[in-house]
Structure formats: structure tokens, C-alpha cells
């Protein structure tokens, strides 16, 4: 049963540069299907920039230049025939700060499927997404109240449910717990563990303990470069690169 899963996302020689500097340099890595990969590294090392280039979220900033390839289902996402909104439908994203729409809880979930004309029973979709995001029991009696009335942790779970509603293959999470208290953080971490069965998850995190708890693979970045990528147990017990070891031991960063 223990077949090595193939790549859900394969990054080949990816570089991202802003107007003044290069944020990501020549990163190549294979993110395995149905695994949780944590991207760690000190602030400003290009973690978020790398993550956002995987579903073309840099398209809106004309000063950002991306080169290299991101291969998803045998296609380069930066290829000429690719339609960026289609990419983002398959590769969802959860942001650092919860950003629900100023609409009802129900509409937050149904908005994505609605604008993309997805078929099926919407009530059912909303319920199943909220259940997957472990939020259903807390909000089932007030689906039509404003999403802004929820607590920060609930809002972030709503954002995860919103991403799930598009039925993506990959979910990118950009420090999803950094704005949350410990209890909500634990809740989101449990959720990530559950979601792994159906989705490939990439999490950027500042918190090394969190990376250790939730991930199968760890990617350590430093100053825009990939320093080390490997299974979490190996990275934390016997890192191959001295820099990685120094970082996990808290010597810098």
C-alpha cells in the first residue's frame, strides 16, 4: 500500500523578482500528492512569495516577474495557453489574515461556486464544506448572519471552507494561524490533518513546532533559495545542511 505518491505540484527552476530585488531564486521541488508540506524559514526569505507564485497570485502586480515552471497535471501553469482563473479554481488559497467577504456566512461559501457556475445543490455544498472545516455545528443556526460576526478563528475556518467549496486539488495556506489564538490554532491544525486525505496542502509557517506537528515534508528556505527539502522527521532529527540545523535549533531567524 505504501506507494510513493507522485507530484501534485512540481516546481522547476522558479525565480520570482520584484522591481528591486529577487525574492525567490531557482527553486525546484516536488510537492507530493495528499501530503502536507510546510515551508519554513526566517522572515523575508521568500516563503510567501513562493507560495503565491504557485496559483499565479502575482499576476495583479505588474512589477513582479516570474520565470521557471510550475507543473500541475502535466501542464506548466505559466504556459501561454493557461487561463489564470482556471488555475486558481484548482489551487485554492487561505490567507494570513482571515478575509471573509462582508456578506452572510452562506454567501461566503456559495460565492465561488456561484460565479463559476458550478452545478449541484448549493445548500448541500455549503453544509458539507462547513462540516469539513469543522464549523458547521457552530454556525448552522445562523448561516444568514454576517460572516464578520464570527470570531477570528471561526472566520479563518470559514475561509478554509470557502476554499474547499471550489473543490480544489491543492490548498495553499499562507501562515493561516498567525493571527489566531492558541485554541483556534489547534483547531486549524487538526483540520489540516483531516484535509490531507483529500487535498494536497502547502503551509507557510513561522512556527517550527507547528511545522513539526502538521507536516509530512518540510521545505527550508533562506534568502530566496531552497536550502533543504525532505521528510519532516528527517529534517528535524538529522538535517543534511548545517544552516537548516542552525535554524531549527533557533540559532537565527
Amino acid at each position: 500500500m505504501n506507494v510513493t505518491p507522485s507530484c501534485a505540484l512540481e516546481v522547476k527552476g522558479l525565480s520570482v523578482s520584484y522591481a528591486s530585488h529577487r525574492a525567490v531564486e531557482e527553486v525546484s521541488v516536488c510537492f507530493r500528492r495528499h501530503r502536507v508540506a510546510a515551508i519554513i524559514g526566517p522572515s523575508g526569505c521568500g516563503k510567501s512569495t513562493l507560495l503565491r507564485s504557485l496559483n499565479r497570485m502575482h499576476d495583479f502586480d505588474p512589477t513582479v516577474k516570474v520565470s521557471g515552471q510550475v507543473v500541475f497535471e502535466n501542464q506548466d501553469l505559466y504556459g501561454r495557453e493557461i487561463h489564470p482563473p482556471t488555475v486558481r479554481k484548482r489551487i485554492g488559497m487561505v490567507f494570513q489574515k482571515p478575509n471573509p467577504f462582508p456578506k452572510s456566512i452562506y454567501k461566503n461559501i456559495s460565492w465561488g461556486p456561484w460565479i463559476n457556475h458550478m452545478r449541484g445543490d448549493m445548500d448541500q455544498r455549503v453544509e458539507s464544506c462547513l462540516r469539513k472545516a469543522a464549523l458547521w455545528d457552530e454556525v448552522k443556526h445562523r448561516l444568514h448572519q454576517s460572516a464578520l460576526s464570527l470570531s477570528g478563528g471561526q472566520q479563518q475556518r470559514l475561509c478554509i471552507a470557502r476554499a474547499l467549496a471550489m473543490n480544489p486539488d491543492v490548498i495553499l495556506m499562507d501562515e493561516p494561524c498567525s493571527a489566531l489564538d492558541p485554541r483556534s490554532t489547534a483547531c486549524i491544525e487538526d483540520l489540516i490533518a483531516d484535509l490531507r486525505e483529500k487535498y494536497t496542502i502547502l503551509v507557510v509557517t513561522h512556527n517550527m513546532q507547528q511545522a513539526k506537528r502538521i507536516s509530512d515534508d518540510v521545505l527550508f528556505m533562506y534568502e530566496g533559495r531552497l536550502v533543504e527539502f525532505g521528510p519532516t522527521t528527517q529534517i528535524f532529527s538529522q538535517p543534511r545542511v548545517a544552516q537548516t540545523q542552525a535554524y531549527i535549533q533557533g540559532k537565527f531567524g
Binding site: 497570485m57 482556471t86 486558481r88 490567507f95 489574515k97 478575509n99 460565492w111 465561488g112
Partner: peptide, 25 residues
């Protein structure tokens, strides 16, 4: 806020969806 635009783009929205259905309201 930019975060609202990003949230909608991340759901596969086209620019006109975002401007008419999110930014305008």
C-alpha cells in the same frame, strides 16, 4: 481592502466579478 480582492481572485474570479460583485458593493 486588498485582502477582499485577493480572496475573490483566489476563488477563480475574473476581474469583472471582483470589481462588480465585491469591490463595488
Amino acid at each position: 481592502p486588498r485582502s477582499l480582492r485577493e480572496a475573490s481572485y483566489a476563488l477563480g474570479a475574473q476581474p469583472w466579478h471582483v470589481n462588480l460583485l465585491v469591490v463595488f458593493p
